[in-house]
Amino acid sequence: MATSFDPTSHLLLTPEDPDAPARMARFRELGLGDRPVAEFDDFARRLAELTGAPFAVVNLVGEDHQYFAGLYATGSEQAVELSPADPAPGGMDRMMDRDHGYCPHVVVRKKALVLEDVCDYPRFAGNPVVDELGIRSYLGAPLLDPTGIALGTVCVVDQEPRPWGRQGLETIKSMAAELTEVIQRGVALPR
């Protein structure tokens, strides 16, 4: 039986994540999970301000979904009740399938990812967030736990192409390192 070869079939797949079970155990140890954290929302707001991006996220990547434990959308200055059932700032949903977006790639690679225009990269241009949310630009860095596991990411996105440049890369990496230290100290995190 002959099979046809599709040279692009591997391009749109979300990468395999062998660390997912260990990451879930680490979330339990740290008291993190599928619930918003007010301090993470504040962190996301600061990240958006530093980068000039309209959207910023502290994203905890699970086995089958991503959870935006911190989220900021420009123009959503109102207070947000923080419970899993409540909407996020600007009415955005805090949960997304694992095969949507670029953060799962950052978590598996354990390296920052800069996409000034996602449409320039065939592997990323076909991601559902391009058509469903109009995402055109992404800048993200992993939250690297001392155990060697990437817990998730901090990232910013825009619906327009953005020249993030070296300054953007340095900013996102330093902000990820800062938040990782905060998480490790357990500062301002609910238990």
Rank of each mutant, 00 (worst) to 15 (best):
170 E>T: 14
75 G>C: 09
135 I>P: 07
139 L>Q: 03
146 P>W: 00
107 V>R: 00
97 D>I: 05
123 R>S: 14
87 P>C: 03
89 P>E: 11
174 S>K: 10
100 H>W: 14
88 A>Q: 14
164 W>V: 05
154 V>W: 07
177 A>W: 11
188 A>R: 12
102 Y>A: 05
188 A>Q: 08
92 M>A: 14
102 Y>I: 00
188 A>T: 05
144 L>W: 01
115 L>H: 13
174 S>D: 09
169 L>W: 07
147 T>G: 13
72 Y>H: 15
178 E>T: 12
157 V>I: 15
70 G>I: 06
187 V>C: 00
133 L>K: 08
159 Q>W: 01
92 M>G: 06
138 Y>K: 08
157 V>T: 13
116 E>I: 02
116 E>N: 11
133 L>G: 05
82 L>H: 15
76 S>E: 10
144 L>K: 08
160 E>F: 12
65 H>Y: 09
171 T>F: 10
65 H>L: 14
105 H>C: 06
135 I>L: 15
122 P>Y: 03
154 V>L: 04
84 P>F: 13
174 S>G: 08
185 R>L: 08
126 G>W: 00
82 L>N: 03
163 P>Q: 05
110 K>C: 09
138 Y>E: 06
84 P>D: 09
98 R>M: 11
61 V>G: 08
143 L>V: 08
143 L>H: 02
166 R>K: 11
154 V>Y: 01
